[in-house]
């Protein structure tokens, strides 16, 4: 063990380059994968910053925040990219993040004025189904129907938590009633998005909790228009993904530069067809072909970070009670 650490430490030391400044960005794993935005973002930013952009992938948003909490004030990260509004309150509570200096004209369905976190993309949660299916038109209609759905566990998955907030934002104190009506629709609950989506594609259920942008992947990447997202009359809960700068960063100016770059065209035009979300600032070239076919909910639902943090534990208990019957 000791020798291994020693040997690997040596390797690590010789590989480090001393001259060019290094900006370390912690993000979720699917961002850095070969099919995510990571590789293109790295190339685009390195072309303008004269620096080395080091992207580090850590599972998902919740794991990302847990990692920052573990590392505390002497974290190696300069930027954390990939938290969402449900995690913002907890992230601010750590006191580890610094205010940003970014100004941008966001194309978000809501007003964004957070002094610490900068949004880089967003989407609506939605139930995705096969296009030939006659989908329910509201959460309530879904709960009353015998349509089978796959959802994710809010304790281990961001979309799962999103659905919890969706029902809470739409129904408030009546949320438990909706959940108990939904409980016989739920085929199963999975650990993460991938498992649920995989099961859906195998035909295990009629609908799966995902995003309104999911059909765009099938349409653009696979030329397959057989998937659609259902619009619900209660409105759709949003996920806004954000990045923030750490107060303990040793590259504060480079970090500011990255955040400003993040809302500019070069970064934003990469997002739609790699992260399959809407860009926070629509690039000049517009959205890629195919995005115009996506459904647009009439009403956007989103709790403020403080509301979300206050509602979370109660909503989880309601969910557990309704689905454990």
């Amino acid at each position: 063990m000791k020798h291994l650490i020693f040997a690997a430490g040596l390797l690590g030391a010789t590989a480090a380059v001393a001259d060019t400044p290094e900006l370390t960005v912690y993000t979720y794993d699917s961002f850095v994968s070969d099919w995510g935005p990571g590789p293109q973002v790295e190339e685009a930013f390195e072309a303008v910053c004269g620096c080395d952009l080091k992207l580090v992938g850590i599972e998902d948003g919740a794991a990302l925040l847990a990692r920052i909490k573990l590392e505390g004030a002497n974290s190696d990260a300069d930027i954390v990219l990939g938290l969402d509004t449900n995690l913002i309150s907890a992230a601010k509570e750590t006191g580890l993040f610094a205010e940003h200096s970014v100004s941008a004209d966001y194309d978000l369905p809501i007003n964004w004025a957070d002094p610490v976190f900068v949004p880089f993309d967003w989407g609506y949660f939605a139930f995705v189904h096969n296009a030939d299916m006659d989908a329910p038109d509201s959460l309530k209609a879904l709960a009353e129907s015998d349509t089978k759905i796959l959802i994710q566990d809010p304790r281990s998955s961001t979309p799962g938590l999103g659905l919890l907030m969706w029902v809470k934002a739409a129904y408030g104190d009546d949320a438990p009633a909706i959940w108990s009506a939904l409980s016989d629709n739920v085929v199963t609950v999975t650990k993460g998005w991938s498992e649920a989506y995989g099961l859906f594609l195998e035909g295990e259920a009629d609908m799966v909790l995902s995003y309104t942008t999911s059909p765009a992947y099938h349409l653009i990447a696979e030329e397959d228009d057989s998937k659609a997202a259902a619009t619900f009359s209660e409105g759709h809960y949003m996920q806004v993904e954000v990045a923030g700068k750490l107060a303990g960063s040793d590259q504060p100016e480079l970090a500011d530069q990255f955040l400003q770059f993040m809302v500019a065209d070069a970064f934003q035009s990469i997002i739609p067809t790699t992260n399959w979300m809407y860009p926070a600032v629509t690039p000049e070239s517009g959205l890629p072909d195919g995005f115009d076919t996506l459904v647009t909910p009439a009403q956007s639902l989103l709790m403020s970070p403080d509301e979300a943090a206050a509602a979370r534990d109660g909503a989880l208990n309601e969910w557990l009670d309704a689905l454990s019957q």
């Binding site: 199963t188 609950v189 999975t190 650990k191 498992e195 099961l199 557990l320 689905l323 454990s324």
Partner: peptide, 12 residues
Amino acid sequence: FAVALTLGGGPR
């Protein structure tokens, strides 16, 4: 964890 949750059908 993942097996039990997925095949178990929910938070039960």
